[in-house]
Design a protein around this nucleic acid. Structure first.
Lengths: 135, 135
DNA sequence: TTTTAAGTCTATTAACTTGGTAGGGAATTT
DNA sequence: AAATTCCCTACCAAGTTAATAGACTTAAAA
């Protein structure tokens, strides 16, 4: 399941997508409009900035804004940043791969199945962007 | 991600699938062969019994065994029992549905997307059984 | 140049979840 | 009756999540 943090992130990004190219938006404004705890939201936006999804401006007239075209930001990318792996097992994760202990990937029945599930999910998540979320 | 408990469950079920119709198998045997902490495994098997995936026999010659044909036990069912929801959001879960607070499902962009992802995953998980995991 | 308005950063905390343990109790077979 | 095996309840430590606090930095405006 997506964490609450992830849901907050998507709500904030939705808000910023609606205001793309309209200048910086205050954290406090997003917090109020989307009912996200202010300080928690700060952390989330900062993280998204470090990953270059968002950019920001300090001081008066400052705020956060999308660093790129919302049609270029994949949903999968956001999930990986704020929620972690999309795969159901570490041993089939593309970006967070970890070998299974006590389990030979060659003859693990779950392994192949979970690759299928991963690919089915990614087929969708890698092909949808922030723009699609807004519609 | 699937919890360690879920991975243990699948390993145990794999073992029991190989021994389907061959009489009860000791918890301690599964524990040893599959390297699963004994007491933890007890809890898992008991839970699977309560959900009628497994059955058991007490006393000498006792143990656990599959309650039905492994070809009839869906992977999705097991995941729901030991891991919980398959969907990425409570508001799109079929078996663990919960309404989103502060989010109108009608106009939530994530909602529709997550339904797609759910259906893609279920398309696989509802059509694979314990038997498929073994081969 | 001072003030004010922002975002930045580090640390802390409370609640919850996960993984694992302990120790009898109950049923069944011999 | 004794041995064997699952059943059940409770507990605990560690980690994660959600949220908060407060001081710091940068930038614009007065």
């Amino acid at each position: 399941m997506l964490s609450k943090k992830s849901q907050y992130a998507f709500k904030a990004l939705e808000y910023l997508t609606e205001r793309y190219k309209q200048g910086p938006v205050l954290i406090s404004e997003i917090s109020k409009k989307k009912k996200i705890p202010l300080k928690f939201l700060e952390n989330i936006l900062l993280e998204l900035k470090k990953e270059e999804i968002l950019d920001s401006k300090k001081g008066k007239g400052g705020g956060y804004f999308l660093a790129k075209d919302p049609a270029k930001v994949k949903v999968a990318t956001i999930i990986r940043i704020v929620n972690g792996p999309i795969a159901m097992l570490p041993c089939v994760s593309l970006y967070f791969y970890e070998r299974c202990k006590n389990c030979d990937e060659k003859k693990c029945g779950l392994h192949d199945l979970m690759i299928e599930v991963r690919d089915a999910s990614l087929g969708i998540l890698e092909n949808r962007t922030l723009k699609d979320l807004a519609h």
